[in-house]
Write a protein that binds this DNA or RNA. Structure first.
Lengths: 116, 116
DNA sequence: CTAAACTGATCCGGGGCCGAAACGGATCTG
DNA sequence: CAGATCCGTTTCGGCCCCGGATCAGTTTAG
């Protein structure tokens, strides 16, 4: 079952979702932060700073800072790799899972009443 | 025809689209800027600073600055309201239309190969 | 015609994010 | 071992955004 989505529907969907997230006074993540969050939760581990930087085509310091911010929000956490202590493994948190599940529900809800 | 979209599909869709826009070195709009852009193009005129501020639940200076940025990118333009010269009418541009059409195509494309 | 009301823009102090470069710690290599 | 290499972090100067208060211009009310 492939997903049929016309251009005008795509824009309407995006508008409703973005508008809703802007109106709520939630965490207000940047595009990069959100991309990192989604990548960590949707692709298989391990996730390192260097790996994320390459995958997002972004500098390493940008990843470090984003991890600081996401860590402070408790949406993600760092853990030293005991096998190779140079590495830092980025891991999920309960709060992050809840956050993304809520977001997914928002999108599906908006999509549902899109073309009623 | 209503739109069926499961939570896991919603997240995958969002990830692919956000990842793609992060990787390209495009305009890199903030959430608010993007919300303004979508609102102006998808809802019926007129669009004023005050109206947008209320509709997005954001301060007026934030709207003014966002319009500065979007105007500099030529994605939107300002026009004094000749009927009531206190108002500023926010209007579309050709470049903005192209930008949003390209974005819509990206979303539909990603959605198409989502669950092939 | 003046005073009040309303519009959008600007000022201000504060905070976040940016990438290049330099840094300290861990690991590999010869 | 010591030197080179790899890792994530920190430093640095610079830029953009934030909202409350204030401003100048316009319109309305008395």
């Amino acid at each position: 079952m492939t997903l049929e989505l016309k251009p005008v529907q795509a824009l309407a969907l995006w508008q409703d979702v973005v508008l809703e997230t802007v109106r709520r006074d939630g965490p207000d993540l940047s595009s990069r932060q959100f991309a990192i969050l989604l990548t960590v939760y949707l692709t298989s581990p391990p996730h390192t700073v260097r790996g994320l930087a390459g995958s997002l085509n972004v500098s390493k310091p940008a990843i470090t800072r984003a991890l600081d911010a996401l860590g402070q929000l408790d949406l993600l956490k760092r853990k030293r790799d005991e096998a190779d202590r140079r590495n830092v493994l980025v891991q999920r948190t309960v709060k992050g899972s809840v956050f993304l599940r809520d977001f997914a529900d928002l999108v599906t809800s908006v999509a549902g009443r899109l073309e009623a």
